[in-house]
Write a protein that binds this DNA or RNA. Structure first.
Lengths: 109, 109
DNA sequence: GGCATCGTTGGATGCTCGTCAAACAATTGG
DNA sequence: CCAATTGTTTGACGAGCATCCAACGATGCC
């Protein structure tokens, strides 16, 4: 059984306002920080520094990021492998991701 | 009686998550578009392409943008003059504003 | 002074959202 | 085959938010 990808918007359907809304939440911005720095791939829900949140809550935030076009999720067995849609976002909003990364590094949140 | 400025966060207190949350709304993102392109100063509530909204609603959105550190408001008589805090934002999050401007131009919203 | 203008404030309302809990489905391992 | 693991889904609840309306304060103008 081959891997599958969870549904996500096409590159040209990514809306800036939805991206900003998705990232305008402390938890999801922290998730972005994890995916930007750190590994580009291979992320499980556990070990994200979100132990204080229920697993269903984290799953919900993942869905918001994916449906906004920020992340891409591949399903393999019981695990989900999440990565940033870096090239798509760079194509759609050049420089935005880099600016966000620098902003996150500048804040010692 | 000299002009006054409405309260706003200091440059170093501007939080990325609050900026993104403030801009993650269609109306406020449109307001940003107005302040980015178009005149840099001298903005009244009327004539912003928001005639469908109540004036108190627009006032509320202005307050959110100001308290997030996106805009700066000077009070002069009955009018409010709003401008982007461009240098402050560039200092805090280099490249973010430019990326947002390009993203807004790319979308024919 | 009296009145129109401009924006703010407060309350009220309905919707969205973040969170948790429990049930569920799918998968892996003994 | 059974049990543990992993993430999703659904419902529920409380907080926050966007919106409108009415009232208010401040200002400018005749």
């Amino acid at each position: 059984m081959p891997d599958e990808w969870l549904p996500q918007p096409a590159t040209e359907d990514i809306r800036l306002v939805k991206v900003l809304h998705a990232l305008g939440d402390p938890v999801r911005l922290q998730l972005l920080s994890v995916y930007l720095k750190g590994r580009e791939f291979d992320c499980e829900l556990s070990g994200l520094g979100l132990d204080h949140l229920h697993k269903s809550t984290v799953s919900h935030h993942m869905k918001v990021l994916r449906e906004a076009g920020v992340t891409s999720t591949r399903v393999s067995g019981r695990h989900r492998f999440v990565q940033l849609r870096r090239s798509d976002l760079d194509k759609r909003f050049p420089g935005l991701l880099d600016a966000l990364l620098r902003g996150l590094e500048g804040e010692a949140s």
